[in-house]
Amino acid sequence: MSDTATATDAHDAHGHGELEMGHIHVSSAAMFFKVLVALLFLTFITVAVSRFDFGSMNMLIAMAIACVKASLVIAFFMHVKWDTAINKIVFLGSFLFLALLFVFTLADLLTRRLDHEMHTIKSPVDKEWVQPKPQADGNH
């Protein structure tokens, strides 16, 4: 006879007694709606705080709110909160490698002189790129 898998797991079936996929978590519709309201509210906050000038803090504030929104999407909409450990490691681990990229990019930026010299970064539309400026101290 053939194997017939029903994958029924009564423990986690949230009121849906029929066929449940093993230990899969089915979130309640009310929770999804609360997450949506929170995300829309945080979008409003994002626009509102951008109206004020906090100097360099504006970037940190905007990114902090975006990170909270992203966490809500990842944890609830993407079900990562209830996902297996290996899936959590794979996806959240990608942000670790992203942090590595950002840290070394930032290290480059902070060890440069942040003054007018920055504008001499070679760009195809720089005049210097086509016609190198003569050296100020003459010949070498």
Binding site: T46, S50, M59, A62, M63, K69, A70, V73, I74, F77
Partner: peptide, 18 residues
Amino acid sequence: HLVDLIWIFLFPLLYLVP
């Protein structure tokens, strides 16, 4: 959801440049 996730960062960075 990933598409949404990316846009959550793009919106403040591009439209409300901090």
